[in-house]
Amino acid sequence: MNCLICVGVAERIDCTGPWEERDCPKCGRYRVSDKLLLTLMEQGQIFDITKTRRWLNSKRHAGCTPVIEIEEALLVP
């Protein structure tokens, strides 16, 4: 399976709900909403790897897996 951020090799994690979860050696463990993935695919967009990794790192605390939803992705400068 591939990382949804950097497209490197990543482990797909089974999760419930409208999410895709990955554990990437470079990007770490995270979830992305299905709605965001569909929007990115429809628009031919990709994640900015550096900005996304920085955002994920800022959201990792107390062992929680960061979740990227469409609202966050549209607001990240």
Rank of each mutant, 00 (worst) to 15 (best):
residue 47 F to W: 15
residue 5 I to R: 09
residue 16 T to I: 05
residue 48 D to I: 06
residue 14 D to C: 00
residue 43 Q to K: 10
residue 36 L to R: 07
residue 27 C to F: 07
residue 51 K to Q: 12
residue 30 Y to R: 14
residue 8 G to Y: 07
residue 19 W to D: 01
residue 52 T to V: 07
residue 23 D to L: 02
residue 31 R to Q: 13
residue 9 V to S: 14
residue 37 L to M: 11
residue 22 R to G: 00
residue 70 I to E: 14
residue 70 I to Y: 09
residue 22 R to Q: 02
residue 42 E to G: 02
residue 72 E to C: 03
residue 2 N to Q: 11
residue 33 S to P: 10
residue 64 C to H: 07
residue 49 I to Q: 11
residue 42 E to L: 08
residue 25 P to V: 00
residue 23 D to Y: 05
residue 50 T to N: 08
residue 33 S to Y: 05
residue 5 I to V: 14
residue 17 G to V: 01
residue 38 L to H: 14
residue 27 C to Y: 12
residue 44 G to E: 02
residue 65 T to R: 11
residue 60 R to E: 00
residue 31 R to C: 02
residue 51 K to P: 03
residue 57 N to R: 07
residue 63 G to N: 13
residue 19 W to I: 02
residue 74 L to V: 03
residue 43 Q to F: 06
residue 58 S to M: 11
residue 56 L to G: 10
residue 75 L to Q: 15
residue 74 L to C: 03
residue 68 I to Q: 13
residue 45 Q to L: 15
residue 10 A to G: 10
residue 22 R to V: 00
residue 1 M to P: 15
residue 10 A to I: 11
residue 20 E to M: 09
residue 43 Q to V: 01
residue 67 V to R: 13
residue 68 I to C: 07
residue 4 L to E: 07
residue 50 T to Y: 13
residue 21 E to H: 08
residue 1 M to T: 11
residue 63 G to F: 11
residue 77 P to T: 04
residue 3 C to S: 10
residue 50 T to P: 11
residue 11 E to L: 11
residue 12 R to K: 09
residue 13 I to P: 14
residue 29 R to W: 04
residue 29 R to K: 15
residue 26 K to A: 05
residue 40 L to C: 10
residue 32 V to C: 04
residue 19 W to L: 09
residue 28 G to E: 09
residue 28 G to D: 15
residue 52 T to D: 10
residue 59 K to E: 13
residue 54 R to Q: 05
residue 67 V to M: 09
residue 60 R to Y: 01
residue 49 I to N: 15
residue 8 G to T: 05
residue 29 R to Y: 05
residue 57 N to K: 13
residue 31 R to L: 02
residue 8 G to D: 12
residue 18 P to R: 13
residue 29 R to N: 05
residue 56 L to A: 10
